[in-house]
Protein backbone atom coordinates (compact mmCIF):
# COMPACT_ATOMS: atom_id res chain seq x y z
CA UNK A 1 0.00 0.00 0.00
CA UNK A 2 2.77 2.38 0.91
CA UNK A 3 4.84 1.30 -2.08
CA UNK A 4 2.69 3.50 -4.31
CA UNK A 5 5.35 6.10 -5.24
CA UNK A 6 7.74 3.37 -6.35
CA UNK A 7 5.72 1.05 -8.51
CA UNK A 8 7.68 -0.44 -11.40
CA UNK A 9 8.03 1.82 -14.39
CA UNK A 10 7.77 5.02 -12.43
CA UNK A 11 11.44 5.54 -11.70
CA UNK A 12 11.89 7.44 -14.96
CA UNK A 13 12.80 10.65 -13.24
CA UNK A 14 11.97 14.08 -11.96
CA UNK A 15 8.85 14.49 -14.07
CA UNK A 16 6.91 12.55 -11.48
CA UNK A 17 6.47 13.93 -7.99
CA UNK A 18 9.14 11.62 -6.67
CA UNK A 19 10.33 13.17 -3.45
CA UNK A 20 13.75 12.27 -2.03
CA UNK A 21 11.99 10.83 1.00
CA UNK A 22 10.03 8.47 -1.17
CA UNK A 23 13.13 7.40 -3.08
CA UNK A 24 15.00 6.73 0.16
CA UNK A 25 12.12 4.67 1.46
CA UNK A 26 11.95 2.84 -1.83
CA UNK A 27 15.57 1.82 -1.38
CA UNK A 28 15.17 0.84 2.23
CA UNK A 29 11.95 -1.08 1.62
CA UNK A 30 11.22 -4.42 0.12
CA UNK A 31 9.77 -4.61 -3.37
CA UNK A 32 8.54 -7.11 -5.89
CA UNK A 33 11.20 -6.34 -8.44
CA UNK A 34 14.95 -6.45 -8.51
CA UNK A 35 15.94 -3.07 -9.92
CA UNK A 36 19.29 -2.38 -11.61
CA UNK A 37 18.53 1.26 -11.86
CA UNK A 38 19.63 2.69 -15.19
CA UNK A 39 19.44 -0.70 -16.89
CA UNK A 40 15.97 -1.83 -15.96
CA UNK A 41 14.46 -4.23 -13.51
CA UNK A 42 13.63 -7.89 -13.10
CA UNK A 43 10.07 -8.56 -12.10
CA UNK A 44 9.95 -11.23 -9.43
CA UNK A 45 7.24 -13.89 -9.35
CA UNK A 46 4.26 -13.40 -7.11
CA UNK A 47 2.74 -16.47 -5.59
CA UNK A 48 0.82 -17.72 -2.62
CA UNK A 49 0.30 -21.01 -0.88
CA UNK A 50 -2.84 -22.75 -2.21
CA UNK A 51 -5.83 -22.24 0.05
CA UNK A 52 -6.21 -26.01 0.44
CA UNK A 53 -3.01 -26.30 2.57
CA UNK A 54 -4.01 -26.29 6.23
CA UNK A 55 -2.68 -23.57 8.56
CA UNK A 56 -0.66 -21.72 5.91
CA UNK A 57 -3.37 -21.66 3.23
CA UNK A 58 -3.70 -18.43 1.25
CA UNK A 59 -0.42 -17.01 2.59
CA UNK A 60 1.23 -14.56 0.19
CA UNK A 61 4.71 -15.95 -0.40
CA UNK A 62 5.73 -13.77 -3.34
CA UNK A 63 9.44 -13.73 -4.05
CA UNK A 64 10.56 -10.22 -3.13
CA UNK A 65 13.90 -8.48 -3.41
CA UNK A 66 14.74 -9.38 0.18
CA UNK A 67 13.92 -13.02 -0.43
CA UNK A 68 16.30 -13.01 -3.39
CA UNK A 69 18.99 -11.40 -1.20
CA UNK A 70 18.45 -14.06 1.44
CA UNK A 71 18.82 -16.76 -1.17
CA UNK A 72 21.98 -15.18 -2.52
CA UNK A 73 23.34 -15.08 1.02
CA UNK A 74 22.30 -18.69 1.60
CA UNK A 75 24.01 -19.86 -1.60
CA UNK A 76 27.14 -17.87 -0.77
CA UNK A 77 27.23 -19.30 2.76
CA UNK A 78 26.78 -22.87 1.60
CA UNK A 79 29.39 -22.49 -1.15
CA UNK A 80 32.03 -20.80 1.02
CA UNK A 81 31.59 -23.04 4.01
CA UNK A 82 31.35 -26.28 2.07
CA UNK A 83 34.75 -25.38 0.56
CA UNK A 84 36.16 -24.49 3.97
CA UNK A 85 34.62 -27.59 5.54
CA UNK A 86 36.04 -29.90 2.89
CA UNK A 87 39.45 -28.29 3.40
CA UNK A 88 39.25 -29.10 7.08
CA UNK A 89 38.14 -32.62 6.34
CA UNK A 90 41.14 -33.13 4.07
CA UNK A 91 43.53 -31.49 6.49
CA UNK A 92 45.56 -33.36 9.08
CA UNK A 93 45.75 -32.30 12.69
CA UNK A 94 49.27 -31.01 12.28
CA UNK A 95 48.48 -28.76 9.32
CA UNK A 96 47.48 -25.16 9.79
CA UNK A 97 44.72 -23.71 7.61
CA UNK A 98 45.55 -21.10 5.00
CA UNK A 99 43.76 -18.47 2.97
CA UNK A 100 40.00 -18.33 3.31
CA UNK A 101 39.88 -21.25 5.72
CA UNK A 102 42.18 -19.32 8.04
CA UNK A 103 39.99 -16.20 7.93
CA UNK A 104 36.86 -18.20 8.58
CA UNK A 105 38.59 -20.09 11.35
CA UNK A 106 39.27 -16.84 13.17
CA UNK A 107 35.56 -15.98 13.04
CA UNK A 108 34.49 -19.49 13.99
CA UNK A 109 36.92 -19.57 16.91
CA UNK A 110 35.72 -16.16 18.06
CA UNK A 111 32.09 -17.26 18.09
CA UNK A 112 32.86 -20.66 19.54
CA UNK A 113 35.09 -19.57 22.40
CA UNK A 114 34.60 -15.86 23.12
CA UNK A 115 30.86 -15.84 22.53
CA UNK A 116 29.46 -19.33 23.06
CA UNK A 117 31.85 -20.78 25.63
CA UNK A 118 32.26 -17.56 27.59
CA UNK A 119 28.52 -16.95 27.96
CA UNK A 120 26.91 -20.39 27.94
CA UNK A 121 29.59 -22.25 29.81
CA UNK A 122 28.88 -25.91 30.36
CA UNK A 123 27.27 -27.60 27.35
CA UNK A 124 28.00 -24.81 24.87
CA UNK A 125 28.89 -27.34 22.16
CA UNK A 126 25.23 -28.08 21.50
CA UNK A 127 24.50 -24.49 20.58
CA UNK A 128 27.58 -23.58 18.54
CA UNK A 129 26.14 -24.69 15.15
CA UNK A 130 23.09 -22.49 15.64
CA UNK A 131 25.10 -19.52 16.90
CA UNK A 132 27.61 -19.83 14.06
CA UNK A 133 24.87 -20.02 11.46
CA UNK A 134 23.02 -17.02 12.89
CA UNK A 135 26.24 -15.01 13.04
CA UNK A 136 27.31 -15.83 9.49
CA UNK A 137 23.78 -15.37 8.16
CA UNK A 138 23.40 -11.90 9.64
CA UNK A 139 26.96 -10.92 8.76
CA UNK A 140 26.57 -11.96 5.13
CA UNK A 141 23.14 -10.31 4.88
CA UNK A 142 24.64 -7.10 6.24
CA UNK A 143 27.66 -7.20 3.93
CA UNK A 144 25.70 -8.18 0.82
CA UNK A 145 23.34 -5.31 1.57
CA UNK A 146 26.28 -2.94 1.14
CA UNK A 147 26.86 -4.06 -2.43
CA UNK A 148 25.23 -1.69 -4.93
CA UNK A 149 21.79 -2.85 -6.11
CA UNK A 150 21.67 -5.11 -3.09
CA UNK A 151 19.26 -4.83 -0.24
CA UNK A 152 19.97 -5.42 3.41
CA UNK A 153 17.70 -8.24 4.44
CA UNK A 154 18.56 -7.70 8.10
CA UNK A 155 17.27 -4.12 7.75
CA UNK A 156 13.78 -5.59 7.50
CA UNK A 157 11.83 -6.21 10.66
CA UNK A 158 10.38 -9.42 9.23
CA UNK A 159 13.78 -11.02 8.80
CA UNK A 160 15.17 -10.04 12.18
CA UNK A 161 11.88 -10.98 13.81
CA UNK A 162 12.11 -14.45 12.28
CA UNK A 163 15.71 -14.85 13.39
CA UNK A 164 14.88 -13.74 16.90
CA UNK A 165 11.95 -16.17 16.99
CA UNK A 166 14.47 -18.92 16.24
CA UNK A 167 16.68 -17.57 19.02
CA UNK A 168 13.67 -17.45 21.30
CA UNK A 169 12.87 -21.11 20.73
CA UNK A 170 16.49 -22.14 21.12
CA UNK A 171 16.66 -20.23 24.42
CA UNK A 172 13.41 -21.71 25.76
CA UNK A 173 14.30 -25.25 24.68
CA UNK A 174 17.69 -24.88 26.37
CA UNK A 175 15.92 -23.66 29.51
CA UNK A 176 13.49 -26.59 29.53
CA UNK A 177 16.37 -29.00 28.96
CA UNK A 178 18.40 -27.52 31.80
CA UNK A 179 15.64 -27.30 34.40
CA UNK A 180 13.15 -29.91 33.21
CA UNK A 181 9.53 -29.13 32.37
CA UNK A 182 8.59 -28.82 36.06
CA UNK A 183 11.47 -26.48 36.80
CA UNK A 184 10.62 -24.39 33.77
CA UNK A 185 6.98 -24.04 34.87
CA UNK A 186 8.04 -23.35 38.43
CA UNK A 187 10.25 -20.57 37.14
CA UNK A 188 7.17 -18.96 35.56
CA UNK A 189 5.36 -18.77 38.90
CA UNK A 190 8.45 -17.42 40.71
CA UNK A 191 7.45 -18.37 44.23
CA UNK A 192 4.23 -16.37 44.47
CA UNK A 193 1.10 -17.60 46.19
CA UNK A 194 -0.87 -20.06 44.01
CA UNK A 195 -3.90 -17.75 43.97
CA UNK A 196 -1.80 -15.16 42.13
CA UNK A 197 -0.56 -17.59 39.49
CA UNK A 198 -3.39 -16.61 37.16
CA UNK A 199 -1.89 -13.11 37.13
CA UNK A 200 1.81 -13.96 37.30
CA UNK A 201 2.01 -16.68 34.66
CA UNK A 202 0.79 -14.52 31.74
CA UNK A 203 3.08 -11.70 32.78
CA UNK A 204 6.07 -14.03 33.05
CA UNK A 205 5.28 -15.53 29.65
CA UNK A 206 5.19 -11.99 28.23
CA UNK A 207 8.52 -11.47 30.03
CA UNK A 208 10.00 -14.41 28.10
CA UNK A 209 9.25 -12.54 24.89
CA UNK A 210 10.35 -9.07 25.84
CA UNK A 211 14.09 -9.80 26.09
CA UNK A 212 14.43 -11.27 22.57
CA UNK A 213 12.16 -8.49 21.33
CA UNK A 214 14.64 -5.89 22.56
CA UNK A 215 17.27 -7.83 20.63
CA UNK A 216 15.24 -7.71 17.42
CA UNK A 217 14.49 -4.02 17.58
CA UNK A 218 18.13 -3.18 18.18
CA UNK A 219 19.39 -5.06 15.15
CA UNK A 220 16.63 -3.85 12.87
CA UNK A 221 16.93 -0.19 13.84
CA UNK A 222 20.70 -0.15 13.41
CA UNK A 223 20.70 -1.73 9.98
CA UNK A 224 17.83 0.37 8.65
CA UNK A 225 19.18 3.60 10.11
CA UNK A 226 22.60 3.18 8.53
CA UNK A 227 21.10 2.92 5.05
CA UNK A 228 18.76 5.83 5.59
CA UNK A 229 21.70 7.98 6.68
CA UNK A 230 23.77 7.10 3.60
CA UNK A 231 20.92 7.76 1.21
CA UNK A 232 20.00 11.00 2.96
CA UNK A 233 23.55 12.26 2.62
CA UNK A 234 23.56 11.46 -1.07
CA UNK A 235 20.20 13.12 -1.59
CA UNK A 236 21.37 16.35 0.06
CA UNK A 237 23.11 17.21 -3.19
CA UNK A 238 19.96 16.55 -5.23
CA UNK A 239 17.90 18.70 -2.91
CA UNK A 240 20.37 21.60 -2.96
CA UNK A 241 21.00 20.98 -6.71
CA UNK A 242 24.70 21.73 -6.36
CA UNK A 243 27.65 19.64 -7.45
CA UNK A 244 29.88 21.47 -4.98
CA UNK A 245 27.72 20.29 -2.13
CA UNK A 246 27.83 16.80 -3.61
CA UNK A 247 31.61 16.80 -3.78
CA UNK A 248 32.24 18.47 -0.44
CA UNK A 249 29.53 17.06 1.78
CA UNK A 250 27.70 14.09 0.40
CA UNK A 251 30.43 11.91 -1.06
CA UNK A 252 32.97 12.11 1.80
CA UNK A 253 30.33 11.69 4.45
CA UNK A 254 28.57 8.90 2.61
CA UNK A 255 31.91 7.14 2.19
CA UNK A 256 32.60 7.53 5.86
CA UNK A 257 29.19 6.17 6.81
CA UNK A 258 29.70 3.34 4.34
CA UNK A 259 32.94 2.34 6.02
CA UNK A 260 31.19 2.67 9.35
CA UNK A 261 28.50 0.34 8.10
CA UNK A 262 31.04 -2.37 7.32
CA UNK A 263 32.04 -2.18 10.95
CA UNK A 264 28.39 -2.07 12.03
CA UNK A 265 27.72 -5.15 9.90
CA UNK A 266 30.19 -7.12 12.02
CA UNK A 267 29.07 -5.48 15.23
CA UNK A 268 25.39 -6.22 14.70
CA UNK A 269 26.00 -9.84 13.80
CA UNK A 270 28.19 -10.12 16.87
CA UNK A 271 25.67 -8.46 19.18
CA UNK A 272 22.79 -10.63 18.00
CA UNK A 273 24.86 -13.79 18.51
CA UNK A 274 26.23 -12.50 21.80
CA UNK A 275 22.79 -11.69 23.19
CA UNK A 276 21.41 -15.05 22.08
CA UNK A 277 24.22 -16.93 23.80
CA UNK A 278 23.89 -14.71 26.88
CA UNK A 279 20.20 -15.54 27.13
CA UNK A 280 20.95 -19.22 26.63
CA UNK A 281 23.52 -18.96 29.40
CA UNK A 282 21.08 -17.17 31.70
CA UNK A 283 18.31 -19.66 30.94
CA UNK A 284 20.49 -22.71 31.59
CA UNK A 285 22.31 -21.35 34.66
CA UNK A 286 21.36 -23.36 37.75
CA UNK A 287 20.20 -21.25 40.67
CA UNK A 288 19.92 -17.97 38.85
CA UNK A 289 22.08 -15.23 40.26
CA UNK A 290 25.20 -17.16 41.12
CA UNK A 291 26.69 -16.18 37.80
CA UNK A 292 26.37 -12.51 38.56
CA UNK A 293 27.88 -13.18 41.93
CA UNK A 294 30.89 -14.82 40.32
CA UNK A 295 31.21 -11.89 37.98
CA UNK A 296 31.03 -9.42 40.84
CA UNK A 297 33.72 -11.32 42.72
CA UNK A 298 35.90 -11.46 39.64
CA UNK A 299 35.52 -7.73 39.19
CA UNK A 300 36.57 -6.64 42.65
Amino acid sequence: MATAPAVPGEHSGEAEAETPGAVIMHHVMDSNEFAFEPFGAVELPRMSIPASVPLLGGLDISITKRVVMIWIVAVALVLIFSIVGSKYKAMGVRQAPSGMANTMEALVEFIRLDVAKANIGHGFEKHTPFLLTVFMFILFCNLFGLIPYGSTATGDINVTLTLSVFSFFVIQIASVRAHGVVGFLKHLTVGTHWALWIIMVPIEIIGLFTKPFALTVRLFANMAAGHIVILSLIFISFIIKSYVAAAVVSVPFATFIYLLEIFVAFLQAFIFTMLTSLFIGLATAHEGGHDEHDTAVAHH
Binding site: D30, I61, S62, I70, W71, D156, N158, V159, T162
Partner: peptide, 11 residues
Protein backbone atom coordinates in the same frame (compact mmCIF):
# COMPACT_ATOMS: atom_id res chain seq x y z
CA UNK B 1 4.30 -13.09 5.95
CA UNK B 2 5.93 -14.16 2.70
CA UNK B 3 9.29 -12.75 3.78
CA UNK B 4 8.95 -14.35 7.23
CA UNK B 5 8.11 -17.66 5.59
CA UNK B 6 11.04 -17.55 3.19
CA UNK B 7 13.45 -16.36 5.87
CA UNK B 8 12.43 -19.24 8.12
CA UNK B 9 12.67 -21.84 5.36
CA UNK B 10 15.99 -20.54 4.05
CA UNK B 11 17.50 -20.22 7.49
Amino acid sequence: PGLIFWTAVTF
